[in-house]
Amino acid sequence: MNALLSIAFVLCWSSGFIGAKLGADSAPAVTLLMWRFLPLAAILLAVAAFSARTSWRRLTARDVARQAVIGVLSQSGYLLTVFSAIQLGVSTGTTALIDGIQPLVAGALAGPLLRQYVTRTQWLGLCLGIGGVALVTTADATATTGAAWWAYLIPFLGMLSLVAATFLEGRSRTQVAPAVSMTIHCTTSAAVFTALATCTGAAKPPAEPWFWAAIAWLVTLSTFGGYGLYWLTLRRSGITKVNTLMFLMAPVTAVWGAAMFGEPFTLQTAIGLTVALSAVVVVHSARPRTREGAVTATR
């Protein structure tokens, strides 16, 4: 079951980069994101209004505020950087590869922030994963994409935003149901992107069918699939193993982007994919140790 959950998470999360590419030529990033989250927030709020409210009743105003901040970091900040980088010409594979550095950052901070020990075997896997990411990033970044050098810095900001959201959630003492957290996150993102689109005069959606096809793709696969499975997998498997799965996003997206958009996929990319897959196997074979009475990422 955990293996199937991991596979579904990797595929659905990777689909977000592909969806961003699908809609990149039809509208600005804020327009895509506004119309991605407006209907999604409406649906989730309607479901919350007519469903059992037991999951909401025990939440305090502070819990809701914390989830709103997590939503700004893990959705608004992260997605805006991803979509902006792709629209500036950075390939889907390269964007995913830069975001693939996240596991090393999260793994390095897991000890001091969450009191979760990272074993030597896990560190070996994390370093192996970084090597795989570096190989594929080099192959992808040296290809002619038309993007300015500074555009490659934008995904780094998104990676740091997602890391911050992950640790903010990990330090929370209140376990919020995935459906509840997703509703708060999506509603917050809908408000943020609507404000940004309105202020920049980009709120009106284009009539192009590719725009709405990209919206449907992003809502179904990327949000309900990728984003929902991210938090579910985080609770079931722990922060180190979940973030190690992020190593797979880069090679999977590179293969996917090559098949759909003709983006470069070289021998060096294939070697990087193999190294990244080996890293996942190594980390998932290790068992983290925690102090007695310490709070772990799985709570």
Rank of each mutant, 00 (worst) to 15 (best):
A3K: 04
S6T: 07
I7S: 10
F9T: 05
V10P: 01
S15F: 08
I18K: 03
A24H: 04
D25Y: 00
W35Y: 07
R36M: 08
L38Y: 08
P39T: 08
P39K: 10
A41P: 01
I43Q: 03
L45W: 11
A46S: 15
A48D: 09
A49H: 13
F50C: 09
F50N: 10
A52F: 07
R53W: 12
S55L: 01
R57A: 03
R58Q: 09
A61Q: 12
R62M: 01
V64C: 08
A68C: 13
V69T: 11
G71M: 06
V72N: 02
L73W: 10
Q75S: 08
S76C: 11
G77R: 02
Y78H: 11
Y78W: 12
I86K: 12
I86E: 14
Q87R: 15
S91N: 09
G100L: 05
G100N: 08
G100R: 04
I101K: 01
P103N: 11
A110L: 12
P112A: 04
Q116H: 08
R120Q: 13
T121F: 00
W123R: 15
G125F: 07
G131D: 14
V133C: 12
T137I: 04
T138K: 00
D140T: 09
T142I: 07
A147I: 10
W149K: 14
W149F: 13
W150M: 02
A151K: 14
Y152D: 10
L153T: 13
V163G: 02
A165Q: 11
G170C: 04
V180A: 11
S181Q: 14
H185F: 13
F193Y: 13
T194F: 11
A197E: 03
T198N: 00
A202W: 12
P206D: 07
E208Q: 14
W210C: 00
F211K: 15
W212K: 06
W212F: 12
A214L: 02
A216W: 10
L218I: 15
L218V: 14
F224M: 08
G225R: 03
G226C: 09
W231V: 11
N243G: 11
L245N: 05
M246T: 12
M249S: 05
G257Q: 02
A259I: 14
F261Y: 15
F265S: 05
I271P: 00
T274G: 13
V282W: 02
H284K: 00
R287W: 03
R287P: 06
T290K: 07
R291E: 15
E292M: 00
E292R: 13
E292A: 09
A294F: 13
V295E: 03
V295L: 11
T298A: 02
